[in-house]
Amino acid sequence: MRALRLLEWKSEPRLVEVPDPEPGPGQVVIRIGGAGACHSDLHLMHEFGDGVVPWAPPFTLGHENAGWVHALGAGVGHLEVGQPVAVYGPWGCGVCARCLMGLETYCEDPASAPVAGGGGGLGLDGGMAEYMLVPSSRLLLALPDGLDPLHAAPLTDAALTPYHAIRRSWPKLTPGSHAVVIGVGGLGHMAVQILRATTAARIVAVDARPEALTLATEYGADAVVQAGAAAAEEIRAATGGRGADVVLDLVGSDETLALGAVVARQMGDLTVVGIAGGTLPVSFFSVPYEVSIQTTYWGSRPELAEVLDLGARGLLVPRVTTVGLEGAVDAYRSLAEGKVDGRIVVVPGS
């Protein structure tokens, strides 16, 4: 079969022929119906090197996947061939306290995981291929009626990641509150929808691109702000001068972190999701009183089930552009150049 593989650090991926995977005991092979192209893949291609993460190329890209069960290994009894499924992307040991809670992102025994700190498309073969081997059936969730693999794929990361960040701040997103979304890209356009579907907060979206702000408005933002020197003042005005109860930084640069700290309301949350590598100096007087600053990584299996339910009900609708495997490299170039609205989904065989 054909697969888009990263063969070495700091290189472009290549489309190559590899053997079709075969499932062992407890394993499942799925036929890929969609694999999302994530901005974090660009970090893998151009910035990572030996020692940055505890795994290395070669591997097939694509950590945001959905498709249909193709083959079952011995002992897998709750799935059927042809059944549509989504892949839970982070793969932990499956038995530590965090994994038993479904938080395999925070596995406490990564040495016993299929790949330490990673998953399919992150150290092991992912979904940018015709077929994908999933090492345990627990990592597959059946798609609810009304949701197809093409639109489910981006929900497994582009929606799950902001959903986890927003869910932990639900107590602060009450009527009369304000949430600021910085960066309306693949994750940000989902964050706006998640806030609209699950909270009563007024939503302010921030981005440098006019087309991204238009997208945010289409998906339910109450106000949009052009990134730049006047952004903090405009956000303050949009929040009635009080600041944001919750700031979601989907970029994570020095500039966006500084903006988030300036516009956060006292006792609010500033959650850093983006991995642009920025830093935020924190001292007693550098942020408003009792502002909680945290990072999050992906989300849990139970949360993915909730996200898929929202998708099936039409409350989360990713903006999708599809390409075949042959167009995946060019798609990543467009992503790097900031020319993508929503999410590019690779559909093998299309």
Rank of each mutant, 00 (worst) to 15 (best):
M190P: 14
D222A: 11
R202K: 15
D148P: 12
G220L: 06
C96W: 12
P144H: 05
A197C: 15
H189P: 10
E130Y: 06
L187C: 12
G176N: 13
Q193W: 08
V225L: 10
D157A: 03
P175G: 09
R202M: 10
T156D: 03
L133A: 00
A113G: 02
G185Q: 12
R167I: 02
V206A: 05
C107I: 07
S136Q: 04
D125S: 10
L140Q: 01
C96K: 13
Y163D: 01
G123W: 03
T217D: 04
V204G: 06
A179Y: 09
M190K: 06
A111R: 10
G121S: 08
R138M: 08
S136R: 14
G228E: 09
G94M: 01
D207G: 04
Q226T: 15
D222Q: 06
A200W: 08
A153H: 00
V224F: 02
G117T: 01
A208G: 11
S136F: 01
V225C: 09
G228M: 09
A200H: 13
V184W: 10
L195F: 01
V225A: 07
C99V: 09
G119H: 06
G121D: 06
P210M: 05
A200E: 14
R196E: 10
G120Q: 14
G228S: 12
G127E: 04
R168A: 05
G185P: 11
A97N: 12
E218Q: 15
L143R: 06
Y219W: 06
G127Q: 11
H189Q: 10
S169C: 15
L140S: 00
G119C: 09
V206S: 07
L155A: 00
C93R: 05
G117K: 03
G102M: 02
A116R: 13
L103Y: 14
C99R: 05
D157W: 04
T174N: 11
R209A: 15
T105A: 13
M190C: 15
G228N: 11
L124F: 06
G228Y: 08
R196G: 06
M101Y: 00
G121W: 06
P135K: 01
A111T: 09
A223H: 14
A113M: 06
